[in-house]
């Protein structure tokens, strides 16, 4: 199994006023290709800080972070931007779609910042990604014409379009009702079955059952790291839910 992420004694400290806040106090783990990892923790556990570091938006105060074999700690801001563009797909709780913009244009956005992808290829890849998340019939809908679940699926397509080595989802179901949440989870599980590597950050313990591995954070340290031999199927849960009235 290829190693996608390797953290070695990651520490991150913030200075707030006169106080030093230790958000991460030595976190180490590796994530292999094809894993679906849930990072769980209450607020203040350091999971957001960890996510920022994993997403190359932030650098650790000390410790080493290797993404796909590349050391991130010493990288310049611009190099990290390029790295994010090529290797990471972000999914946010509030979707962060561009307003009044069609699905296809939203999904194309990461490729706009990639010189190597031409216009025709960009469009074709965006359409493929939208089809992959089941929005083949919503290509030219504007973001304000879509439901929450659809918007999140556009965001997922946007995270897939650059073929990242890792997908980082930050409370991706936090703004959705439970039914749509399970739909999105089922989509994640399908992506996982297709071999994608996914890190799902959440504070909701229920969601941990649907991933292959759960890492729990508390006060900046890992308190548990367990493999989940029997993943629950989001599709089954979805089927067991009472049907919505049409």
């Amino acid at each position: 199994m290829n190693e996608i992420i390797r953290l070695e004694q990651i520490k991150r400290e913030f200075i707030v006023g006169d106080e030093v806040v230790r958000a991460l106090r030595g976190v180490s783990f590796t994530i292999g290709e094809g894993e679906f990892v849930t990072i769980m923790g209450t607020s203040g556990s350091g999971k957001s800080t960890l996510l920022n570091i994993l997403g190359c938006l932030d650098v650790p105060t000390s410790g080493e972070y290797y993404l796909d074999g590349i050391s991130v700690r010493e990288m310049s801001k611009n190099d990290r931007a390029t790295l994010r563009n090529r290797k990471i797909g972000f999914i946010f709780q509030n979707y962060n779609l561009l307003p009044k913009t069609t699905s296809i244009e939203n999904v194309e956005l990461p490729l706009m910042y990639n010189r190597e992808v031409g216009h025709a290829e960009r469009r074709q890849r965006a359409i493929a990604a939208l089809q992959e998340v089941g929005l083949g019939d919503r290509l030219t809908h504007r973001s304000n014409q879509l439901s929450g679940g659809q918007m999140q699926r556009v965001a997922i397509a946007r995270a897939l379009v650059n073929n990242p080595v890792i997908i980082l989802a930050d409370e991706a179901t936090g703004n959705l009702d439970s039914r749509t949440s399970y739909e999105v989870l089922a989509l994640f599980q399908r992506l996982h079955r297709d071999g994608r590597t996914i890190i799902f950050v959440t504070h909701n313990p229920e969601l941990a059952n649907f991933s292959s591995r759960t890492i729990t954070l508390r006060d900046g340290r890992i308190t548990s790291d367990t493999r989940n031999e029997h993943m629950a199927s989001a599709e089954e849960v979805l089927a067991s839910l009472p049907k919505e009235e049409e």
Binding site: L57, K77, N78, A81, R84, F90, L109, Y113, N162
Partner: peptide, 16 residues
């Protein structure tokens, strides 16, 4: 601001 944050997170450089 959020749009700028998003653009940066998906790989836009400050210069862009």
């Amino acid at each position: 601001t959020r749009e700028i944050g998003l653009r940066m997170s998906i790989g836009a450089k400050g210069r862009q």
